[in-house]
Design a protein around this nucleic acid. Sequence first.
DNA 1: CTGAAAGCGCTTACAG
DNA 2: CTGAAAGCGCTTACAG
Lengths: 343, 343
Amino acid sequence: MRSDKNFQRRRRITAIDVAKAAGTSQSAVSRAFTANSSLSKDLRERIITAARELGYRPNAIARSLTTRRSRIIAVVMSYLNNQFYPDVLEKLLDRFQKADYQILLFTSERSGLSDPLFEQIMRYQVDAAVLASTALSSRLAGECRAAGVPVVTLNRTIDDPDISSVTGDNQRGGYEIGRFLSAAGHKNLGFIAGIKQSSTNRDRELGFRQALREAGMPNPQYALGNYSFDETVKAARHMLSQHIRPDGIFCANDHMAIACMDVARYEFGLNIPKDLSIIGFDDVGAARWKAYDLTSYSQPIEMMVDNTFETVMALIEQPEQPARHLVVPGKLVVRSSARLPLS
Amino acid sequence: MRSDKNFQRRRRITAIDVAKAAGTSQSAVSRAFTANSSLSKDLRERIITAARELGYRPNAIARSLTTRRSRIIAVVMSYLNNQFYPDVLEKLLDRFQKADYQILLFTSERSGLSDPLFEQIMRYQVDAAVLASTALSSRLAGECRAAGVPVVTLNRTIDDPDISSVTGDNQRGGYEIGRFLSAAGHKNLGFIAGIKQSSTNRDRELGFRQALREAGMPNPQYALGNYSFDETVKAARHMLSQHIRPDGIFCANDHMAIACMDVARYEFGLNIPKDLSIIGFDDVGAARWKAYDLTSYSQPIEMMVDNTFETVMALIEQPEQPARHLVVPGKLVVRSSARLPLS
DNA sequence: CTGAAAGCGCTTACAG
DNA sequence: CTGAAAGCGCTTACAG
């Protein structure tokens, strides 16, 4: 069967080998490695011993062919240079590994071509997909679902209400940030947006604008950072060069807020927060770094991941159940990058 | 066969369905989806059309059962909060996806219990494993290899010379940093170490000490940061509280250097680099952030990943070939966190 | 070029 | 509790 001679791994040890060694049948071996299947204590022990001696390990690939469950979850993620995502990934990994699921990781190229991605996800018969890439077209989610693969989007929602999602409270976060800035007596606010079509950006911006409106403030100045460090540098330069320079900027995430702070301080010589307040979103690790000490709205990763996990499991058990849309509350973490409300 | 009624995904579309629709045999369908297998243009087209109409996608799991190649690579990684690793991961993903390999991601809990990890890796029949976790015991590598799974360690080496590795030039990097600091006229150097048993730390420290020796300088003051931000904060506090305070510190990676800078500036009120020079290692993205502007020795991720990929492929083709130990050259990236050599 | 058939390593209904 | 056997969805040597 093998044609390329280069390929020859030592013969695999299979359940049949173990069965022979333990003087029993292959089915019994299978049962010994399957939770709550009926097998006498005695036989089970004999099998386990033989297996250990032979270095036998059940072949998960073969198993999933018959069970039709791979115990593999596809995770699609990009923007790994934004610390928020690796942190999410690490927690996801922990959570799913603990439940004996493995994670097959995909990045969507920023080009957004999700088709080949979808192909691969389907071919590997994943039990579910977690989509945590803001860059992603919502098409991927729809395709997965149409193909019967449970999907949950993490840190984003998409148009289709039938697709479950877990997000932070983006709108409320934007709103609180707007209130905080206006209460501190800022006169000219700015907003540096992430990717325009992303739900995170949309909701954060929505909340922010609403707060300004309620406070009787004009619309904020606007620039596009696209969740990219370099683009944000340009956006900040542009915004800070305006005739009327903002005295407070809300950046749609911490990653951009850091870029913005660097520009303000080192290119414009501004003192933060005296000359300019900056607030981010996510409360990533670097927000705590003293050189930034960034005021931010938190997204509690642990809770988001737990909710994602629960939702995925529920969907695997009952694919037809109604979609869930979980919103995990965060809170404004006040540090020193923005002036405090006048008391 | 299925007992739990909750589980029912729509019937999968298999090669047999496509064969029927295209009026041919299942073998032909298989051939249509296999590169360079003999099949008439005509039949192939008919099959592809039928497949598209039915939404058929070959089942990679079933395929790997017969080919005995899963086209899955295990990647083991931890310390994802050190930006170096997500950056590596993103590149690895790109590189392997491009070659039609998928990545099954594992974190080793920092506890270091690698046994269950090994179990899972084996069960999923991965074609190879890339170990990029400094926290890892070298046992995992040995076990994989003993089980016939090609292994390459990335950003670390282990004792066993039969296990391939790809690393930056840690020793030379440490050496150049030592020369740079001594040439700048520093009098009292300090070293904040990463994980003691890690090869990266060992080699960086080795080179550093050698340079000091050659320059006729005393051994550096020493503190342990264990590649952890919080531990480094403590280490830096301790080191900077000494009677004779160092005027230059080499931190075994950028992640720790940032922690160290924060302590120096915001707890001790030191001016960097006037009062204290700090140099890191890796040249991660944050080293370029203006608030740190960190002098560092670079590890060229792209090249490291390319080499890892090539090595993995070579080992998959010829498992018995001799191990490779590739060292990718980096360079000192001079920014403003350390005083310059006296010219 | 094409098809029938064996086999990859498991799980599980069935029968005892 | 235990075993023989069918079947999961493919690949590929074999024969035509």
